[in-house]
Design a binder for these strands. Sequence first.
RNA 1: GACCCUAUCGUCCAGCGGUUAGGACACUGCCCUUUCACGGCGGUAACACGGGUUCGAAUCCCGUUAGGGUCGCCA
Length: 440
Amino acid sequence: MTVRTRFAPSPTGYLHVGGGRTALFNWLYARRHGGKFILRIEDTDEKRNTEEAHQVIYDGLKWLGLDWDEGPDKGGEFGPYRQSERSDIYAKYLARLELGGHVYEDGGAIRFRSPRKSVVVEDMVCGRIEFDMSNPATHPDMTIRRPDGSWIFHFVNVVDDIEMKLTHVIRGEDHLSNTPKHVELYNALGEKPPVFGHIPLILNHEGKKLSKRDGGSSITYFMEHGYAPEAVVNYLCLLGWSPGDNREKLTMEELLAVFDIDKINRRNAIFDLDKCFWLNGQHILSMSFERFVELAKPFVEKAAIAYGTNESLLAALAIVKPKVKHLSDVPDWIGFLFTEDFSFDSEAVEKSLNKAGAAGRLQALRTTLVNLSEWTHASLEAALKETATALGVKTGELVHPARVAVSGRSVGPGLYEMFVVLGKDRTLARFERASAKAAA
RNA sequence: GACCCUAUCGUCCAGCGGUUAGGACACUGCCCUUUCACGGCGGUAACACGGGUUCGAAUCCCGUUAGGGUCGCCA
């Protein structure tokens, strides 16, 4: 039997991180077991069903690196993959329930008559759970069709899972209490329920369900704030699970090899943006340069940095990669390399450039550098240190003003790296201007 | 209210009958260092409570408490 899992979001115009994680776990499970991952859009509520809302889902999943084998945009053997287009199928299944005497009319709506027996759910994550369905007050007969003919979630969800031959249903724990209802439907239809796996919920710092207002509650947030997808995927897996060997940073390949849904714990987890941020830095640090360029470039383009040739952009990105924590910070980190019109941080100017003697030291350094025949990291470092010795000052007394002279700020890439990327002429020109500025 | 799930540092995870209760984020001290990072070495900090079971319990059982979820003609 081929494993078939699905992600079945409703198009709300917003992809929740919890949804992203559900999608991820389903995808991981399918890929690990050589199965199929299906995308189904639950858009029975037509009011909020827009094309843009669908796009948010596609974009979010693609960004996370999750590809689906069947879906609305892709087709597949068991389509259509939008519930709004599956009404005929639901009608057929309703007829089956009617035939078995499982439904009745109530004020124009159609309800499913619960057998009122206890239902046992064997859950991949939660284990064996028994639900007592005998009390109609607490477990009323569920409605499956409204008077206007539109369908209710529980019913269409089950019908589609049957029709699409899903073997495993991995979803949020908020559905655990709904599961016995779903099982009753499977039984009434004479179908075998899939294997369920209810994963714990993601909470905010107040311990409440993560809502739209919370920072980092949507996948879009991570896309826009310069997170690497691999870092977000990594973090999401770490919520409720660990590889068991104290590793924190794992690549997608490593996750695919060791992530196991039934080892996930049953506790709801509080989302910690700090740790996600740290993982992002770790991933950026260790990813290939090519990958870094791929992820950083869109931010550079969006900021409309006039970087000239591709080579010069790559040179700038290379010296910044070990420092950057958010990809969205890249434009700010490299901008000063491509314009003479960069701004000077007043605090930095005050602290090093305007320090007594700074202008003179800068001039001395300039003189040394003018005569430098070789413009490399090593020769620049040697030259600067010699100058410092000759002047009888500490290296830092030259480094700090030079850094501000060349970049306008006190924080940035390595000094010699900046010299090399700027080249001799521009470096010396900036020295000139800064000396004048310091003197003034 | 009923039913279901859960309970280890502030947070995320390890632990599955005998441990100085471990790692990571955050916070913090020192070192490295041209800034900022990175990295290295430390520090602060936890078994919710009460009963059992056992020679022995963070670990097993039962309660209590707390948190979360579900009980829609939302999904």
